[in-house]
Design a protein around this nucleic acid. Structure first.
Lengths: 258, 258
DNA sequence: CGACCTTTTGATTGGCGTCAAAATCTGTGG
DNA sequence: CCACAGATTTTGACGCCAATCAAAAGGTCG
């Protein structure tokens, strides 16, 4: 719970080879001509090792980031007790760092889970993009709406679900999101996925201790609902698990206002 | 916890006197000329008694609503157990119902707390407004960002705070939001506010039972941090209470991306 | 190989839930 | 304006889910 993971290094910029910007969700659906024009907005690519800090609550960053590869988390630390609450899991294509308070301060921290590649955009450039480029504002609205849905589901888990239901939900959420990405990229699907987050991460997402998460995962494995070992996760009985967790795939879909 | 409040009636439309649309947050900061043009978008005004249903999860509504007066809540029911999780408290100016999944289904319910007046907009008109009216898309982005912050703070409360800290947080959140509205409208402030939500509502927002919320509120009153009686709330020691809850006012501020 | 995570297991504790009933409040109809 | 029903608050007794504490076992990476 006391988040002891060493943040091995902070963000450092390296001028980069071209970031395949068209794969980033924010720009999905934007006509090619407009995209060429916005390519200029891309500035930096960053490669970070696993478990390193991206930004920290209280800072006022001039950049926002899209995760290009790897897993990352947004989280906040309760200063009284040192406990950590994970706000969101980030997978490739996800955006972070745009949410600030009135004075430009970011209220949460971000860190990598695995080795990751980020694309950094100057915050001001995003502002200009939003004004110049109508499609991007609408796209960002949809992304925020999807993220809101993720946050609400974690709130429901932490607030009104049992430990078992909550853990099952997080496993399904991440399994499904990863499967979606694999399907979109490689047009294949598999019953098992790379699963680099720790049991402590799972607990910090839904308000449980690593110890209790462990016991619950053991239960789920004993009941042959999942298989989870050595950073690899399989869902053995998707139907039963989904019922237990009250999970449906459409919770993870984009929620298009437009 | 089993939400027994009777939903006395569902939405019914009445053609209305002009809704003072310029006070609705979504349209704050939009130039007057553009506003005249968008006045046409307003279609219906609805008056609902206390504790009535606005819309229900699973429905696909053709309308979105802004709360013009009164208090309301967004919530979701866990079907296994009948438990309720409140996702957000709504005060005048707040928007609801725009968040759907890919097939247009709303994933949460909404209900009034007090007698309320809503303004209904056809969802399609909102879509057109967002395309025609750049300022509104940006404004909606900021509103979503504020709502995300509220949701994250409730997640932190439910996940990683004690009952006392969580209840203190909700009281401060609502006190501060109401105070802000009073200040903006009447340019006065008061140490006490109308507080129409029940202790069960508070519990359902941060994952506690009404019984335990009651005990915690008693504690907070015994310690002279708050006064809470007959639907009226005073904060007696804002400093101590804020420290306990780890609450800061900027959590409630708009989080402008632009 | 050695240091440090991470997972696993056991024993014990405690915060909050559950159950139940009384007291108080609120709105509604006679 | 009172009476009554239903909602909400309050209080007490008791139980349990998950936290805490502790330590061993297994993984991982330099």
């Amino acid at each position: 719970m006391n988040h002891k993971a060493t943040h091995k290094q902070s963000v450092s910029f390296t001028e980069c080879t071209k970031c395949p910007i068209r794969n980033v969700s924010l720009f999905k659906g934007v006509p090619k001509e407009r995209l060429e024009q916005t390519q200029d907005y891309r500035k930096n690519q960053i490669r970070l090792p696993a478990r390193s800090r991206i930004f920290q609550e209280g800072e006022s960053h001039d950049f926002i980031y899209t995760l290009y590869s790897g897993w990352a988390i947004l989280y906040k630390t309760i200063s009284n007790t040192g406990k950590r609450q994970i706000l969101r899991f980030l997978l490739p294509g996800d955006l972070m760092g745009y949410q600030t308070n009135a004075s430009g301060i970011i209220s949460h921290s971000a860190g990598t889970v695995t080795e990751s590649i980020l694309c950094a955009f100057p915050r001001n450039d995003l502002k200009n993009m939003l004004i110049d480029n109508h499609e991007i504002a609408l796209r960002l609205l949809n992304m925020e709406s999807r993220d809101m849905s993720l946050c609400q589901n974690h709130l429901i888990a932490a607030g009104r679900k049992t430990a078992k239901e909550s853990v099952a939900f997080v496993l399904l959420e991440l399994f499904y999101r990863v499967q979606n990405q694999i399907k979109n990229s490689y047009h294949v699907s598999s019953q098992s996925i790379e699963f680099p987050i720790t049991q402590e991460d799972i607990g910090d997402a839904v308000g449980l201790t690593n110890v209790h998460v462990n016991r619950v995962i053991k239960e789920l494995m004993d009941e042959k609902l999942i298989q989870c070992h050595k950073k690899r996760l399989s869902i053995l009985d998707e139907k039963k698990l989904s019922e237990l967790a009250e999970f449906t795939p459409d919770m993870m879909s984009d929620n298009p206002l437009i």
